[in-house]
């Protein structure tokens, strides 16, 4: 890539980053430009991913192989068993099942035959539910139980801090699980012992959420540092101070916009007053 294109790329990257960040102040035309560009680029990206990773290898190429394979049937008579054998072995005919189901979704654009799309949607929902049920039973149910069932004491270990903490941890995990599950009982009224256990369950949940929050925020900060690092890179003389110039231009826009808006609103108030 030539140096000029690198500099242009730097300006575009720095510009779009600052435009998106400008939303932190307030909605503005620059954010709208970045937003719509992002939306269009995102959809364009997904379209080519679907086209090259799904449609081409999973529909177009198998159909092409099938069509090529069917060339041979011209040499057989339709009533001969060889004809049907050649038809059957020409390629993968099952490809038409998902393809037709997929195409059925398009029929919703045509009022008269839109009912056909229900076959595709029904299949997707049925397939999804069918796939989720056994997986949920094994991961949410059985694995959860197995992960919690641990002996309270380790075999052959003498009493020490390590073995004490092992016992404490095992007990705490089991106790926490039971209390959290009690919180999620919907068909039992929460009073008495159930209420107490449920309240302890909420504390366990909040402890977990707190830890998850901290963990995720740290991850997000590392992403933010990444953007700042890029902005710092584009603020160098090599990129003709792209980051500073764009940030300064945006600041000027906001200041001017503030005064113009204030002037307009004053004029509007005067008009309505008179």
């Amino acid at each position: 890539m030539s140096e000029t294109w690198l500099i242009i790329g730097g300006w575009v990257a720095a510009g779009l980053t600052i435009f998106i960040f400008s939303f932190l102040y307030k909605d503005n035309p620059f954010f709208k430009i970045a937003e719509h560009l992002y939306l269009g680029a995102g959809m364009g990206w997904w379209f080519q991913v679907m086209f090259y990773n799904i449609w081409k290898p999973k529909v177009w190429e198998p159909v092409k192989i099938l069509v090529n394979g069917l060339q041979i049937i011209q040499s057989y008579h339709i009533w001969k068993p060889e004809f049907w054998k050649a038809v059957w072995t020409a390629g993968d005919w099952t490809i038409f099942i998902p393809t037709l189901l997929g195409l059925s979704l398009i029929t919703q654009f045509f009022q008269k035959i839109s009912w056909v799309s229900r076959y595709g949607f029904t299949f997707i929902m049925g397939y999804g539910a069918g796939l989720v049920i056994p997986v949920s039973v094994s991961t949410d149910f059985m694995t959860q139980i197995l992960g919690t069932i641990k002996p309270l004491f380790k075999v052959g270990t003498e009493m020490s801090w390590a073995s004490f903490f092992y016992t404490f941890n095992t007990f705490l995990i089991a106790f926490g699980l039971v209390c959290v599950l009690i919180y999620f009982f919907f068909s039992a009224e929460q009073k008495g012992l159930v209420k107490k256990a449920s309240n302890i369950g909420i504390y366990f949940l909040m402890l977990y959420f707190g830890a998850a929050f901290g963990n995720t925020v740290m991850g997000r900060f590392s992403l933010l540092y990444g953007r700042f690092d890029d902005l710092y890179k584009y603020s160098s003389v090599k990129y003709f101070y792209a980051a500073q110039i764009i940030a300064a231009a945006l600041a000027v826009y906001f200041i001017l916009n503030h005064f113009i808006s204030a002037k307009k609103s004053r004029a509007a108030q005067d008009n309505s007053g008179s």
């Binding site: 909605d27 954010f31 709208k32 970045a34 937003e35 992002y38 939306l39 680029a41 995102g42 959809m43």
Partner: peptide, 15 residues
């Protein structure tokens, strides 16, 4: 429909 891209969807809905 907005977008099948996670963050462009978020940016657009935010707008």
């Amino acid at each position: 429909f907005v977008s099948s891209d996670q963050f462009s969807y978020a940016a657009s809905v935010d707008g």
